[in-house]
Design a protein around this nucleic acid. Sequence first.
DNA 1: TGACAGATGCAACTGGGTTGCAATATAATT
DNA 2: AATTATATTGCAACCCAGTTGCATCTGTCA
Lengths: 145, 145
Amino acid sequence: MNRENVILTELKGGGYRLTQARKAIIQVLCEARAPLGAPDIIVLMASIGTSVNKTTVYRELEFLKGQGLVAEVLVGDGLRRYELMPEGHHHHHLVCNECSAVECVEVESCVGEDVRQIDHIEKTSDFKVTDHSLKFFGLCARCRL
Amino acid sequence: MNRENVILTELKGGGYRLTQARKAIIQVLCEARAPLGAPDIIVLMASIGTSVNKTTVYRELEFLKGQGLVAEVLVGDGLRRYELMPEGHHHHHLVCNECSAVECVEVESCVGEDVRQIDHIEKTSDFKVTDHSLKFFGLCARCRL
DNA sequence: TGACAGATGCAACTGGGTTGCAATATAATT
DNA sequence: AATTATATTGCAACCCAGTTGCATCTGTCA
């Protein structure tokens, strides 16, 4: 069973309805190769035959995030992007300074996973670290041409 | 000579005017202990006796950023924050999930400075890395009470 | 003091995101 | 198939950070 059906089944089992909008937004997210913003999602949904109001998209994304099925990706340009919750692997993002395109990468050793350093930060800053975000900025292949 | 005067002198030398608004915004940034957003800056400027239009603040921040005197800090909540350009030391930020407060921290070894890993990323992703951003999310001291 | 160019204010606008409420559609039940 | 409960959706108005064009003002220097 593919990811899309796993998600739909999980939602149905949780007592949630499988509406047109929900199925379409999940399909769009499953087919995406990079995190998508709500405006992108609206266009993509329309392109596969399901036009929905933006409110619905925002609420659905919030819902899927709450269900732990989708992750919010904040790149800093003020647009909230979403991707399917990464399964197991810890990954980060590449953000193009020109076109804002976002790609995914995996990094060998990330400070965010170094218990000793996190511990040090928490002690010196009086801050409880629960998560981290590592992003690389630069130019994507297309914008470098 | 303190940082504030160094900046003012540098600007004057560059042929730029030392206006009330400019002096006040620089003062506010110099006195800040953490990155500030434009709305915060407007309030702080008013509190030291210089009320300015928001357009002025946005344009001034853009100007100071262009002069390399101020750095933009993107935390992901859609608000652009600004801090004096860090001198020499490479630092990162702690972002509170509750109140969005931002603090600064220094990290021992950051992937963003590991030439070997950057090289690896550029080769496997066909992306030219020019910068990076590492942020830790969690709860600040106040929100943990 | 006059004048130029840099700097500012105003007002209207953009766009992502939110909210309250009425209307609709899904899925279980009869 | 009709009924029903409520999860879900659409609409319209709204919020707020940030932007833009243009007229006006002001710091600086001659």
